[in-house]
Design a protein around this nucleic acid. Structure first.
Length: 462
RNA sequence: UCCCCUGUAGCUCAGCUGGCAGAGCAAGUGGCUGUUAACCACUGGGUCCCUGGUUCGAACCCGGGCGGGGGAGCCA
């Protein structure tokens, strides 16, 4: 008999047909005349209830071993359930315990656990309702990202994870080396990077943007989707040292095109989650964040709000007394300001544009006012920035000038500047933090709980 | 990196002014005519994070260290 998943079995007619189910026991409940086994194989949130009527002999012995966490194979017939709680169930004729999970040492119990505790057992937490649901939604969102961009003719470009260009300028980097650090430390001498693997210092990438821009200037519509690394000593519920980022880049696109793409993109992802992950989202709505589904649906209903930095600052200054940090033009927006703007003023996602050039990256296109750049951040309620992007500076002279103003090394950007020397075009792109999307869609509170194995300062277990 | 909170049974926590270590859940045993976060009864279960100090006496007070959480900054 072909093995069907619980999800596949759930799609069958409960007409007494023979089925086999293999999975892990979530709970076992016994009454005098029957044993109820809830089996889950991760194919969906709901368990499959398997009923053993008056088990005796070998079957009773097997069931005794089938505690929470044990892997089992159950055979029986699929029938409509006579009791409330589930539409169908398996009337089991046999149970085989494949791998026991001794109750006195198996960490997961048939009760709720704290997120903090589950983080300590990251190898077992996917067996919980919450982390199973997170994994399924994460999978669906990853696929939806490709679906959306591919349908729009974007090419998926694999940008490097190791970079020796030292020109990305988006934060502290992890160094990659094969030098013998212990021996170097003992010798007390200086480091000779010509002896290192790449013949010069190398790092893990903090962004694929600069690399993907090169392919943008040939294939027009491109994106990267991969891991990025930041060695910042950030200890928050919104930052990881290793996280995944989607970075589309579009040739001949201006900032307004960029925002239109970002809005369509985010709405597509939210719509897909609501549609294809309904059971998991209902769980998040009930157990993790009340009102989640309603707020996601509301996102689809209306266009995102838009505001320039200068407009936003004027609004913030009117409510200056509400803030710890007093707002003034030129200040980089604080978390409290971002939350105020999208929660109190916009009541949903909010695009902020045209930031002062001093608080944004060198590659962003300078406005005619000489003060601001064509940057855009998409802020969302609950945690602020989910997308950061800009129209890029395509004018060689202005880009070179900005690099020098910031004290950066012009030579390091040689290949990047070539894109402006040869057939330059206006172009725009943005970065969407995948785990921040996951926080947004699932309502989970901590970014460490929406990635299987979180990496953060002093956290690299498993 | 900074600020605040926190560390007690497998888990979640209580433990008052320093005076014999507690509860709920989980587990085990028994009961229960279909349970579904099952229910009822009973039972077992402790390096009170580590370390130094104060004290007749420390889970409790003080110093140091380590871990966890929340917030801030950096950002996606």
């Amino acid at each position: 008999m072909k093995l069907l998943s619980v999800k596949e079995i759930a799609g069958l007619e409960a007409d007494g047909r023979q089925v086999t189910v293999k999975g892990w026991v979530r709970t076992k409940r016994a009454v005098k005349s029957a044993v109820f086994l809830e089996v889950n194989d991760g194919s969906r949130l709901s368990n499959l209830q398997c009923v053993f009527e008056s088990p005796e002999g070998e079957m009773a012995e097997e069931l005794a071993k089938a505690g929470t966490g044990a892997s089992v194979a159950v055979e029986g017939i699929l029938i409509p359930s006579p009791a409330a709680g589930q539409r169908f169930e398996v009337r089991a004729s046999s149970c085989r315990v494949i791998g026991e999970a001794p109750a006195d040492s198996y960490p997961l119990q048939k009760k709720a656990h704290s997120m903090e505790f589950l983080r300590e057992i990251a190898h077992l937490r996917p067996r919980t309702n919450t982390f199973g649901a997170v994994a399924r939604v994460r999978n669906r969102m990853a696929f939806a990202i490709h679906e959306f961009l591919q349908a729009k003719g974007f090419n998926y470009i694999h940008t490097p994870l190791i970079t020796a260009s030292d020109a990305e300028g988006a934060g502290a980097m992890f160094q990659v080396t094969t030098l013998d650090l212990d021996r170097l430390a003992k010798s007390g001498g200086s480091v000779d990077y010509s002896k290192d693997f790449f013949g010069k210092p190398a790092y893990l990438t903090v962004s694929g943007q600069l690399n993907v821009e090169t392919y943008c200037q040939a294939l027009s519509r491109v994106y990267t989707f991969g891991p990025t690394f930041r060695a910042e000593n950030s200890n928050t519920s919104r930052h990881l040292s290793e996280f995944w980022m989607i970075e589309p880049e579009v040739a001949f696109a201006e900032l307004s095109d960029n925002m239109e793409l970002a809005e369509d993109f985010l709405k597509h992802l939210v719509r897909t989650a609501l549609c294809d992950c309904a059971e998991d989202l209902a769980f998040f709505d009930e157990r993790i964040q009340s009102g989640l589904i309603e707020s996601l649906k509301a996102v689809l209903d209306k266009p995102f709000a838009h505001m320039t930095y200068t407009e936003a600052m004027a609004i913030l200054e009117q409510s200056a007394s509400a803030f710890e940090v007093k707002p003034y033009w030129g200040l980089d927006l604080q978390s409290e300001h971002e939350k105020f703007l999208c929660e109190k003023i916009a009541g949903g996602p909010l695009f902020l544009t045209d930031y002062p050039k001093e608080i944004k990256s060198f590659y962003m296109k300078q406005n005619a006012d000489g003060k601001t750049v064509r940057a855009m951040d998409l802020l969302v309620p609950r945690f602020g920035e989910i997308i950061g992007g800009s129209e890029r500076e395509e004018r060689l002279d202005l880009l070179e000038k900005r690099i020098l103003e910031l004290g950066l090394n012009l030579d390091a950007y040689g290949w990047y500047l070539d894109l402006r020397r040869f057939g330059t075009t206006p172009h725009s792109g943005f970065g969407l933090g995948f785990e921040r999307l996951m926080l947004y869609v699932t309502g989970m509170a901590n970014i460490r709980d929406v990635i299987p194995f979180p990496r953060a300062p002093r956290l690299a277990d498993f």
